[in-house]
Every structure is written in C-alpha cells, then in structure tokens.
C-alpha cells in the first residue's frame, strides 16, 4: 500500500497512517442526491484495499426528498452493519440539516464533512404566509464540522449534472483515508454512469485539493478545547456528577467532549399534569406509577426545551452533559426516582 500525500504538491503536516485498522463512516443526505452511489463508491475502495466491508442503507422516503442514510464499516472482520451513535470516525453529509442531525453518530474527535446545500423539508415551514422556517442557520458551525460549499468548490464541474457537486465531499474524505488517488478514480470509473464521469472526476479532484482545510479540521477535532463546542456550558456539581469538574474548563486530556441533552426533573415539584408528555415531539417523557414525569427515552431527546418551557411547575431543566457522563447523569435522575418511591412524602 503506497502512502498518499496531497496530490498537488502542498504536503500537509500530518499524513494519514499507512494502514487503518478499522473505521466507521456515515453518509447522509436526501433522496436524489446520490448518497447510495457515494457509499458504494467508498465501499469499493475499501474492498479493493482488502478490508472486510459491511454497508447498510435506509432510504424510505428518498423518492420524495426524504432522509437517506448509509453506514459503512470496515476492518479485518466486521460483524454488525450498523454504526453505533458516538462511534463514527467520519460523517459525509450531502445536506446541511441532515448533516447536523447525524452528528450524534460522530466520535468525540471525529470529523464531519458537511455540504452547505439546503434541501428544506415541508415540515420545516413554520408559517406559510411569511415563509418563516425552522431550519438550522448556516452561520453556526458546530464543533467537529467542516462546512463545505460544494457547489462553489465544484464550479463548472457540476454545470451539466448538479448532483455531481457532492463528489467534492468524497475528494475531501479521500484526504482523511490512506488510499492512493488511483484507487478512488478506479472506483468512480466503475460506478458512475458514463455521462457524468468526467464531471465526477473533476469534482473529486477539487475536493481533494481542499487537503489543507480538511487536515486542519481533523487536527482541530483532535485537540481544540471546549470554547468551540456546541451547546451551552454545563458545570455539574460534584455531588450529582460522577466526574470532577473544574469550573469553566471542561476538556479531558485536551480532547473536547461532545455534549448531549439530559432533562432534569425536580420530582418534588412535578404535579403530573401530562403537559410535557404530550408536548415532547420525540416522546421522551412518560409519567410513572406516582404520576411524576420521567425522562424515559434520553436517546431520542433533541434538547429542544419544549418540555421545560411549558412545564407549569418549573420542574424541568434541559442540561447539556458530556456524552461519556450520560449514564452517570441518568443514573443520578434514577436515584432520585428510587428515593422518591421509597419516601413518597
């Protein structure tokens, strides 16, 4: 296996390792963007490099612009086809919101290459008269994300077939993987229809020329401290959290931590009115046998705060806690529950 440097002679500081042991990739987008084709293409490169590769796809509503997700896992021997949340080394997203939505799959120091292309789903329309939208702003780029204006990068390469622009992302991804450029070109040759072939090859090349930016994003994801993290500060108290904290800083061994939402319910204030249960769009909350709200499905919580905003008893707070501590925090809640059940005053 030959080692690859930047194809254009601008040799970056850190080159990828000669051989990766294993890896997890998540490719997301919406129907018609070529997500499946792209994951086939990457899988081909991996198979040619001698890995065991497993790939899975979800594309239910893809014909009408619905979400399309493909998981690609490789290594000496791969058993499960699914990438677990928090374990993707790379995310390649063809659409901005889909990219942000998939971030829970990313490892704490993984890299997400996200196109700034916007495909706005009908459900995001808040008011049809003033056209107001609920759609994440392009200005706010979360930690670990490299936002790429794929159309601008692709330029005339995508003039004939617009979908070709997203191949820029594969060029950028190729910088992070230790395979020769010829392997990628061969895979593109094998999978892409004739009429779009030259466009795809050129878009790939332009993406690969982004090596300095891509490497910088990778380096930042490995080292940058928490000032650029998503979500607000959380300073857990020593008593409730299983980890020590030191005030404003919240990075472990210099590695920034990903934060996940946790709903803290003050059980002694909750009157079991059912408002949070009915209002939560993700159905995360239930009432227990004492008619007290319980954060039953934390994995589905988006941190939207609707429950806390509409709780008439001010009994809820949405906290953002480091992903590794999540079980500790949920357990802290659970302890409250057990205590309350034992002492129903």
């Amino acid at each position: 296996m030959t080692r690859v440097n930047g194809s254009n002679g601008k040799v970056p500081a850190r080159t990828p390792p000669a051989r990766l042991e294993s890896g997890n990739l998540v490719v997301v987008g919406v129907g018609g963007q070529g997500v499946i084709l792209a994951s086939n293409l990457v899988s081909q490169v991996l198979l040619d490099a001698g890995y065991d590769v497993k790939k899975s796809e979800v594309h239910g509503m893809s014909q009408r612009g619905g979400t399309v997700v493909s998981h690609v896992r490789f290594g000496p021997e791969v058993h499960s086809v699914m990438v677990e949340p928090g374990s993707a080394d790379w995310i390649v997203a063809f659409e901005w919101e889909e990219g942000l939505r998939s971030l829970s799959y990313l490892k704490p120091n993984g890299v997400a290459l996200v196109s700034t292309e916007r495909r706005i789903p009908p459900a995001a329309m808040l008011d049809h008269r003033d056209q107001s939208l609920e759609y994440p702003a392009l200005g706010e780029v979360p930690f670990g994300v490299l936002a790429l204006d794929t159309f601008a990068v692709a330029g005339d390469a995508a003039a004939a077939v617009p979908a070709v622009a997203q191949t820029v992302l594969l060029g950028a991804l190729s910088v992070l993987l230790p395979f020769p450029v010829e392997a990628w070109q061969a895979s593109i040759n094998a999978w892409v229809p004739r009429k779009a072939l030259t466009g795809n090859l050129r878009a790939f090349e332009r993406g690969r020329a982004l090596a300095p930016e891509v490497r910088a994003a990778e380096a930042a994801a490995r080292t940058v401290a928490r000032t650029v993290e998503p979500g607000p500060e959380v300073v857990p108290s020593a008593s409730a959290s299983p980890v020590e904290h030191d005030g404003a800083k919240r990075s472990r061994d210099g590695v920034a931590e990903r934060l996940l939402p946790v709903v803290r319910i003050e059980r002694s204030w909750c009157k079991g009115c059912d408002i949070c249960v009915a209002m939560c769009p993700e159905k995360c909350l239930v009432l227990d046998e004492l008619d007290v709200a319980v954060f039953a499905r934390p994995e589905r919580c988006t941190g939207c705060q609707l429950c806390a905003l509409l709780c008439p008893d001010l009994a809820m707070d949405v906290l953002w806690v480091p992903a590794d501590d999540l079980t500790g925090w949920l357990f802290a809640n659970e302890e409250d529950r057990v205590r309350a059940a034992a002492d129903p005053r």
């Binding site: 409730a240 959290s241 803290r264 009157k271 509409l310 008439p312 008893d313 001010l314």
Partner: peptide, 28 residues
C-alpha cells in the same frame, strides 16, 4: 439543583412547589 436554568435562581425555593393546580397556565 446543578445546572438549574438562570431564572430558577429568582425563585423563593423554600416556597416551592407552588400552590397552582396541575397544568395551570399561570406557572408557564
């Protein structure tokens, strides 16, 4: 409690929970 949002610090904690009925909009 740890992480309680800022507005909760303006409450008289000793008085909580409040006396309003379950679901009463006044609390919101």
């Amino acid at each position: 409690w740890p992480g309680a949002s800022a507005e909760k610090h303006f409450l008289r904690y000793g008085m909580m929970p409040h006396m309003l009925c379950p679901g009463c909009g006044h609390g919101i």
